[in-house]
Simulated assay, not measured.
Amino acid sequence: MIYLHDIDPIALALGPLKIHWYGLMYLLGFGIAWWLGRRRINAGRLPGVDEHGYGDLMFYAMVGVVLGGRLGYILFYDLHTYLAHPLQMLKVWEGGMSFHGGLLGVVAAVWWWSRRRGLHVMDTLEFVAPLVPPGLGFGRIGNFINGELWGKVTHADWGVVFPASLPQPYASMDAATLRAHFQSGALDAFARHPSQLYQAFLEGLVLFTVLWIYSRKPRPRYSVAGLFVLLYGVFRFLVEFVRVPDQQLDYLAFGWLTMGQLLSVPLILLGLAWLWCSRSAPTLQPRVA
């Protein structure tokens, strides 16, 4: 069934204050990560760390996600535009977050927190890795609600018509007129892959399920983090084949290589390397603080 995307990105408007679904998705992702992490702390999965220390870790990690994700998007995807319009950097509710930048931000935050507590940074990353996928999944749902980062045109029955992707004269039509054209079937040819939902499923639900089950018992150092970056890199690389590349970048090479794929290759290699290292690495045993 083809669907016309007509979701209001604003969840609640209180006078000049507007609460966007995109921001709520991030809050939901952080909230679930916080709850899951507390369960792991209480089970002693990060020995020597109590709930107070965990609160500090989550604060640093959240700052790393937001700052790293925003800066990563600016540097990797649209530096020219943000240099021309610096105030746009602050409008995170409009989208424009990079996973790869957010990952670097989290790694920096985890390194800083671990260094202050005398912990091995990889042990902390192993603890954090299973908490990340819910945020990735809800972030992609936020992209879908915003009607951004859509996929290529498809003839599948589950295609979505994104108004912002339509050519003229459809792009300038009001909502009622556009819906009338949609109901007549005139817009079926413009239906696209809901690539945001593909990513929400793979990077969110599937990745979380695999990591949570795999990490339920102690694993050798490097293994959980290695599995995380490997699977994310593979999932992202594959979905990019049905996703439209960012307009300002287009394809980088070969008529198909996107920036998302280029940035995912190092993750795949790093994941394989970490999994190899885990074969001779020690296993951290749970110990309640």
Rank of each mutant, 00 (worst) to 15 (best):
M1S: 12
M1E: 05
H5M: 04
I7W: 12
I10N: 04
L12M: 11
L12V: 06
L12S: 05
L14T: 02
G15Y: 10
P16H: 05
P16I: 08
W21F: 13
M25C: 15
Y26S: 10
G31W: 12
A33M: 10
W34C: 07
W34M: 11
W35R: 15
G44D: 02
R45N: 07
L46S: 00
P47M: 06
V49I: 13
E51V: 08
Y54D: 03
Y54W: 08
G55W: 02
D56G: 13
M58W: 08
M58F: 14
F59P: 04
A61P: 04
M62S: 13
V65P: 01
V66E: 00
G68C: 05
G72S: 08
L79P: 00
L83S: 05
Q88L: 15
K91D: 11
G95W: 03
F99H: 09
A108V: 12
W112E: 13
M122G: 05
D123W: 11
T124P: 00
E126N: 11
E126W: 04
V128F: 06
P130R: 12
P134T: 02
L136N: 03
F138G: 01
G139Q: 05
I141M: 12
I145E: 01
I145W: 08
N146S: 07
K152C: 11
H155R: 14
A164S: 14
P167M: 08
P169K: 06
S172M: 13
S172R: 15
Q183D: 14
S184D: 13
A189Q: 14
A191Y: 03
R192S: 01
H193D: 03
Q199F: 09
F201R: 04
G204N: 09
W212Y: 13
I213H: 08
Y214L: 15
R216Y: 06
K217I: 02
P218C: 04
R221P: 05
S223M: 15
L227V: 07
F228P: 02
V229I: 10
Y232K: 02
F237T: 01
V239G: 02
P245M: 09
D250G: 13
D250L: 14
Y251H: 09
F254M: 14
T258M: 11
L262F: 14
L263Q: 00
P266I: 03
L270Q: 01
A273M: 15
C277H: 15
S278W: 10
A281L: 12
L284E: 12
P286A: 11
R287T: 05
